[in-house]
């Protein structure tokens, strides 16, 4: 029953869950960045617009990188 394959799958599932939770946290940070940029733009303050956009793009790149890592992880037997 407890074959090496069993432990490998369990480990993969835990790693996957961890990555997904981290991606979710980054997603919420992106929501906050979007709302902050929009609010500041409407108030006429544009100083943080470009840094906010850069940060959001960096978070998206991180999410994309993690997705590719997950897909690679799933392919490994």
């Amino acid at each position: 029953m407890n074959t090496p394959e069993f432990y490998r799958r369990r480990q993969k599932a835990i790693v996957f869950l961890g990555l997904m939770l981290f991606a979710l946290i980054l997603f919420f940070i992106q929501i906050w960045l979007f709302v902050m940029t929009l609010e500041n733009m409407l108030a006429g303050r544009t100083a943080m617009a470009v840094p906010g956009a850069i940060a959001s793009l960096a978070l998206f790149a991180t999410n994309l990188w993690m997705l590719r890592g997950v897909q690679r992880l799933m392919k490994i037997n």
Binding site: F27, Q30, M41, A49, S56, L64, M66
Partner: peptide
């Protein structure tokens, strides 16, 4: 989630571009 993250990044970039 990654797709939604991309959408948010795009939206933030659009807002930043408009404000400039």
């Amino acid at each position: 989630l990654t797709l939604a993250s991309g959408g948010l990044a795009l939206g933030t970039v659009a807002v930043a571009a408009y404000s400039k």
